[in-house]
Design a protein around this nucleic acid. Structure first.
Length: 613
RNA sequence: GGACCAGUAGCUCAGCUGGAUAGAGCAACACACUUCUAAUGUGUAGGUCCCAGGUUCGAAUCCUGGCUGGUUCACCA
């Protein structure tokens, strides 16, 4: 805040002139004065007491007197213990509000950086679930926040469209589908494909179970079991081995994968057909979540990338080759291990592709930064990837960030797709919207508007509840998703914030066309009104912090706090019923400013405002 | 075993680049709608900030060591 550095400069000068004490502006911390004391901002004097050999009263008086004398907007000061509280003129805050109204901006100037934000990045064998929802909302909100903070942003995703998982769906459809289509079954297309993935797992499980009681299975168990290992525990741990070495279904799926890699025409056609169904379904979910992408990368295109860079790195000593032909990078100097970048048979690993994809994206966009929205189980991988890209001296290597987020747990424990405890993204959206509708119908505020508009409002409210519930939590924290609480619309929720906005709209409608110029005559604001102005003034610095930390929860909290102040203001103070015309005009103008700020803050975290609710 | 992340009210979370008496919401209880949308506001109650040391005028915040939960350390992705 500019005005604080003005005070800071005076303090610095005094400390230097009087005590030969050089203090840099960073160590001069001004805090907002706590509610229970008089003042706007507080300078903590303790750090200077020893070196100046003054007590707080003396030092505070010296600084306070000078600041009040030299800085026109500081009206007075008081000293409590080691805290020097500055009180500003009321007119200063009224001017701030006017400036925000006249040429206030909700974004920061372009900073010359271009950043690519990757999020969502699903597999194509099943529909999106709650885990994806957190990923998508985080990535989307971060994109908006970075964009408002002055970055040029490219939103992208990489779709994992190949591999054994999609082959399982394909195989199950081929064997058991009898030519069914999403249309013929009237199913959302990605759910249709997911159904066959589940069917495959079911048939495989049956097959495995039969094998376990067969002679062959029994022999394997007797020969390979560890001591004290129960039959159940053994077969649980043996599942992968069985899939690869014994299973007929496993063999078929693997053969399909092989054919895919050999570009078999029929398999490729089937693959395209099923992936396209999934994409149709995803598109619908993205639309309902309100997110879009600027570009899409497919793993089937990118999985071959990176090998040439490995050669490059070998020749200039970034990588080294072992006797068996495998290629590695030594990351011990940054506290990590040696990491494989190419297998001994010359095929790629995850790391290889990611190195190649990063460079391709740089070539495609010239972005000097990349943000990867990926769950925190991959922290180590991304650390290794970024260090590798640094050693390769890639031009964008200083702008890499892993937007790491914690898993989403249910109150009953972890989500496990195998145990059917996942929360489906589409179901979730439906539920919150239905809950919004139930509430709205009960309240009856919007009975008079058209059915179409009502539906639209239910959606906005339901989505607000869901988005806010997920985004209010710091990304890196593991979060508990309680379905009952996620549809809550009271307290620290999206609808609570929307409600503040709606109240303002309602007042504007009632006020009609009004000349607000009289607000300039309003000179004696209530404390709550000043609190609101201070909060409004904090929007841009909040945006900056949220962008620096890649953390939408900071913006979500800000909006909640502003809405909370407005709700209190609304209940304590007459707006349309104000006795003075100037007060009425001022309060309407203040409301307008709050509404715009809430709307913009919520837009950044992917939530739209209704005009009624 | 090494590394990383988390641990704050019954529950869900803020606060963490050190500052005044640790804050919200939910749940509980009590109040406030003839008055601008009560999806609101007010109040009561609720705390060993995981534990133990250390640094400091001052520690939920920083350091060290533990404890608990999670993740990771694959020629898997």
């Amino acid at each position: 805040m500019e005005f604080l550095s003005k005070i800071g400069a005076v303090v610095q000068r005094i400390l230097k002139e009087e005590f030969q004490l050089e203090v840099d502006s960073k160590s001069l911390l001004f805090n907002e004065t706590r509610k229970e004391f008089d003042g706007d901002y507080t300078l903590v004097l303790f750090p200077f007491l020893k070196t100046t050999r003054k007590n707080p009263q003396e030092l505070g008086k010296l600084i306070g007197d000078t600041v009040v004398q030299e800085i026109e907007f500081v009206q007075s000061y008081n000293i409590i213990k080691g805290f020097l509280n500055f009180e500003f003129h009321v007119s200063f805050w009224l001017d701030i509000l006017k400036q925000l109204d006249d040429n206030g901006s909700f974004s920061l100037p372009n900073n010359g950086n271009k950043v690519l934000v990757e999020f969502s990045s699903p597999n194509t064998n099943k529909p999106l679930h709650l885990g994806h929802v957190r990923n998508i909302l985080l990535g989307w909100a971060c994109s908006n926040i970075l964009s408002a903070a002055g970055y040029e942003v490219v939103k992208t995703q990489i779709i994992n469209d190949r591999g054994i998982a999609i082959c399982k769906s394909m195989l199950a459809w081929q064997k058991f589908g009898a030519g069914a289509t999403p249309q013929s079954e009237a199913m959302k297309a990605d759910h249709f494909v997911g159904h066959y993935y589940v069917l495959f797992e079911k048939k495989f499980k049956e097959e495995y179970s039969n094998w376990q009681s067969s002679e062959e299975g029994g022999t394997v168990y007797q020969n390979l079991r560890k001591e004290d290992q129960s039959e159940e525990a053994f077969f649980k741990s043996y599942k992968n081995k069985y899939f690869n070495d014994y299973s007929a279904l496993g063999a078929e799926a693997k053969s399909m994968l092989l054919k895919w890699e050999q570009n078999d025409v029929d398999v490729r056609a089937l693959w395209s057909k099923m992936n396209n169904w999934v994409y149709q379904g995803f598109e619908e979910t993205y639309k309902n979540l309100g997110v879009t992408f600027d570009s899409i990368y497919y793993e089937s295109d990118t999985y071959t990338l990176g090998k040439d860079i490995i050669q490059e790195g070998l020749s200039n000593g970034v990588f080294y080759k072992k006797e068996d032909g495998s290629v590695w990078i030594d990351l011990e100097d940054v506290g990590m291990d040696h990491k494989l970048v190419l297998r001994s048979d010359g095929t790629s690993v995850y790391m290889t592709q990611d190195i190649g994809t990063a460079r391709k994206r740089y070539e495609d966009t010239q972005a000097n930064g990349m943000v990867y929205t990926v769950a925190d189980e991959q922290d180590y991988h991304f650390k290794a990837l970024f260090e590798t890209l640094k050693k390769l001296e890639e031009p964008y290597c200083e702008g890499l960030h892993h937007l790491s987020y914690g898993m989403v747990d249910l109150p009953t424990g972890k989500m496990k797709s195998r145990e059917g405890t996942v929360v489906d993204a589409d179901d979730l959206l439906k539920e919150v919207i239905q809950e919004a509708k139930n509430n709205a119908v009960e309240r009856g505020e919007i009975e008079s508007i058209s059915e179409d508009e009502r539906q639209k409002i239910y959606q906005l409210i339901g989505k607000a509840a869901l988005n806010f519930f997920i985004l209010k939590v710091n990304p890196k924290k593991r979060m508990v998703f309680n379905p009952a609480e996620s549809v809550d619309m009271q307290g620290t929720t999206g609808p609570y914030v929307q409600n503040a906005y709606v109240r303002i709209q309602s007042i504007k409608r009632k006020a009609g066309e009004m000349d607000l110029s009289k607000r300039m005559e309003y000179s004696d604001p209530e404390p709550i009104e000043l609190d609101i102005i201070k909060k409004l003034n904090g929007f841009l610095s909040t945006l900056q912090i949220a962008a620096d930390q890649y953390d939408p929860s900071i913006m979500a909290s800000y909006c909640y706090e502003l809405a909370k102040l407005y709700h209190k203001f609304y209940s304590d103070i007459r707006i349309l019923g104000a006795t003075e015309e100037s007060a009425k005009a001022f309060r309407i103008a203040l409301g307008n400013s709050v509404a715009r700020t809430l709307q913009e803050g919520f837009r950044l975290i992917g939530i739209e405002m209704p005009n009624r609710m």
